[in-house]
Design a protein around this nucleic acid. Structure first.
Lengths: 294, 294
DNA sequence: TGGGCTTACGAGCATCGTAAAAATC
DNA sequence: GATTTTTACGATGCTCGTAAGCCCA
């Protein structure tokens, strides 16, 4: 018994003749004839009476027809669901965003989903990289977007959609240091509160090499917070200077420090290696790339 | 997407490895591997994560598994119902019995069904041959057991299970004519009431040829009734003599008339030609043969 | 005689099993 | 090195389409 045979059975019962049904099924008459014969043999009983040039459902055929209909319908539904999940237009995706990506992506991502993929559930988790990776490994997340420089390389993780974003010291418009076209010596920054997320050793090393011991984050940073968005808000409403990627605060002013900072952060989408992706992740993936490179 | 593939999917998800599943499915490992691959391709998404030598259901796989289970289960059920109807162990059979067969078959048939096929509905209709054949053509009966000599041959009717049964004049035990081993001249019968169902022209002709004009049923038969069982009961409780098949009244005594009657009735099971039988009819068919030849 | 279903036969396609390769532990 | 999955390849089997046969109006 085959799903194809059941489809033939159904169409034949509806069209009332092998000739018509075979056309509807894009088959030749003999092929349909054999298909029905095979089904009848398999079920152990004739489904149709061949009365001269007319056919008619047998008692058994009538009883089995309704069941065959339901079966085929469910098969179609199963396949449709499979394809739907492939498109990622429905289902659930759980994405973790670390501080920087969170500030840039959270709002536009949720917005985009609400507008363009109403049937796709998106769960955004915020947290530091270590926490997110742990959740990813525990399969409580499907993906995480983090600074991959803060990520210890691991064989069970795959990084994709990597984007490098330039970082800088940022201040509010109208800040005392906001003098257009005028480079600012690093020392002048220290007159203001410096805000930053916890920085990796790599970044700390770069800072001290460039600006001296005073740039050691342990000393330099006065406002430390996991959440970049909060830091940006602080810089926006005060004279505090925030060290972060420029894209996180587009309404803030990047300061031209001397020597130039020339720092970047490298964001990437981390998933478990050798694991099939949740279908909806395809959309998230594209979105992340688009939003970060915009 | 194939039912076979879905079965493979289910077994694989339960066994947890291609190797085990392939053994359970009586397949080689590569065959199973390809089957799953084909299904995954068809559904548009991986169903299993291949993690080293271990496999694990993907999110999509988990969602589709339950549906696949239900689908396969219903397919099995459909097939089972088909086969069950084939065996005829359930369903409904409507059989018409004319006078003679009714007397012999009604009770034992209903009894047998009640005892051995409790899930098979049997409807027994009694009536004369003409009435039964009409009901058969109108598809209000699935079969009729009648004297086929009283049946006008017709292309749309099929006769099977033909059995010839000897008929005789029967009287009760202890009847004045019941003298063991002593043949009875036909004329002596006429001293008693003669009971019979309406007889066909063929039988009438035979009677007059053998015993003379006095044997013309129109004159000879004094008790005429459609129902053989009733006639037998009359003969059982009176001196009436009944002309019918011996099997209809096993407790009655067949009379050795001179010349010998040597009459038979030819019973057969009539169905519509070119029509698939109701499944349960197989059992009825066997039962009729068995009861009539016993 | 024509329309409709079935049987016969050769071709194409899918699935299978065996064997070899790749990958993991 | 052993076990498990995947890929390669030749063989079997199934289903299809064309053509011929059969049957009923």
């Amino acid at each position: 018994m085959t799903l194809v045979q059941l489809r033939h059975f159904i169409v034949l019962s509806e069209s009332g003749s092998f000739a018509k049904a075979s056309k509807l099924l894009f088959l030749t008459q003999p092929a349909l004839s054999r298909s029905i014969q095979a089904l009848e043999y398999d079920l152990g009983h004739a489904l149709f009476d061949r009365i001269g040039r007319r056919i008619e459902l047998t008692m058994v055929g009538k009883q089995l027809l309704s069941r065959a209909r339901r079966l085929v319908q469910e098969a179609d539904s199963l396949k449709a669901i499979g394809r739907q999940m492939q498109d990622g237009v429905s289902g659930i995706v759980r994405v973790g965003l670390s501080s920087g990506p969170g500030a840039i992506l959270s709002t536009p991502m949720l917005l985009h989903m609400a507008q363009h993929h109403p049937r796709l559930q998106l769960e955004v988790a915020r947290g530091n990289t270590e926490l997110l990776i742990h959740a990813l490994r525990a399969q409580r997340l499907d993906a995480a977007v983090v600074d991959i420089r803060a990520l210890r390389p691991a064989a069970d993780l795959t990084v994709s959609e990597q984007v490098e974003m330039s970082a800088s010291f940022l201040c509010r418009k109208g800040h005392p240091l906001d003098e257009v076209g005028v480079p600012v010596p690093f020392e002048r920054l220290l007159a203001y509160p410096i805000a930053s997320t916890p920085l990796s050793d790599e970044v700390a090393r770069m800072l001290t090499e460039r600006y001296g011991a005073a740039a050691n984050p342990d000393d330099m940073v006065t406002l430390r917070c996991d959440d970049t968005a909060t830091l940006v808000e602080v810089a926006r409403s005060s004279d505090a200077i925030v060290l972060t990627i420029k894209a996180a605060g587009r309404d803030l002013v990047p300061l031209d420090t001397v020597p130039a900072l020339n720092a970047t952060a490298r964001f990437g989408l981390v998933t478990l290696a050798h694991r099939a992706e949740v279908p909806g992740l395809r959309i998230v993936r594209e979105l992340v790339t688009r939003l970060l490179t915009a």
